[in-house]
Design a protein around this nucleic acid. Structure first.
Lengths: 108, 108
DNA sequence: CTTGCATTTAGATATTTTCCTATTTATGAA
DNA sequence: TTCATAAATAGGAAAATATCTAAATGCAAG
């Protein structure tokens, strides 16, 4: 959870997540949205992936990332629950409604 | 929201929030839980307060802080909604169930 | 095998954050 | 007023983060 919060503490990284909310994208497609050198974007993406917030899938020479919605929600909900107990309710039945949940073992 | 995420990205600050989940406390009471110099704690608290995550109330020479549960929930929920739409439901009726919501204008 | 494209890694530098000690401010009590 | 206590501010050193350019890696096509 530590990693998730660190990952979310950066505006570029939150913007990357927002772009990805439209669906899976390659690194190049993400980078095209930013006025930032490719390696910097790549680093941000890897921080998000390291935090378990992104899924990763290779297709040829491209790498496609998508939001790990489940883990994103888990991190925030489980943090929030002690302060705001009714968050538990939604956390409980989240699995029923969350859309994407594909996976990959391709860890570098 | 930027400030809230930055504030939450620190382990000591999240620990402070956890301590405060037990109820309002003075700076000294919080500091007693940490192996860290008082000014450092004071700074962490002020970062949390700046982010709107803590309420502040003076009583004599003491300053009492408490969790601004509403804003904490708001920040996280509103961020999460695009990725996890069902979060909206809980966000909508949150006001009905959230416990503490006292306020103070004492802004430094 | 060589070339080209997508992505990542390395290394350097600038900025930001963290945490300390010393000092200041604000309040209450003698 | 003077002294003591709670909290905040100031200033500085050390560590972490962000970003760049240059180089390396992985894959596919000719």
């Amino acid at each position: 959870m530590e990693k998730a919060f660190k990952a979310l503490a950066s505006t570029p990284r939150r913007r990357i997540l927002n772009h990805l909310s439209g669906g899976p994208m390659t690194v190049g497609e993400i980078a095209a949205q930013f006025d930032m050198a490719m390696p910097s974007i790549s680093k941000h993406i890897s921080v998000l992936h390291d935090a378990g917030l992104l899924h990763r899938q290779k297709r040829g020479q491209e790498v496609i990332y998508s939001i790990a919605a489940d883990n994103l929600a888990n991190s925030l909900y489980s943090f929030l629950t002690p302060f705001c107990p009714e968050a538990r309710d939604i956390a409980a039945n989240r699995k029923l409604t969350t859309p994407q949940d594909n996976d990959d073992g391709t860890n570098r």
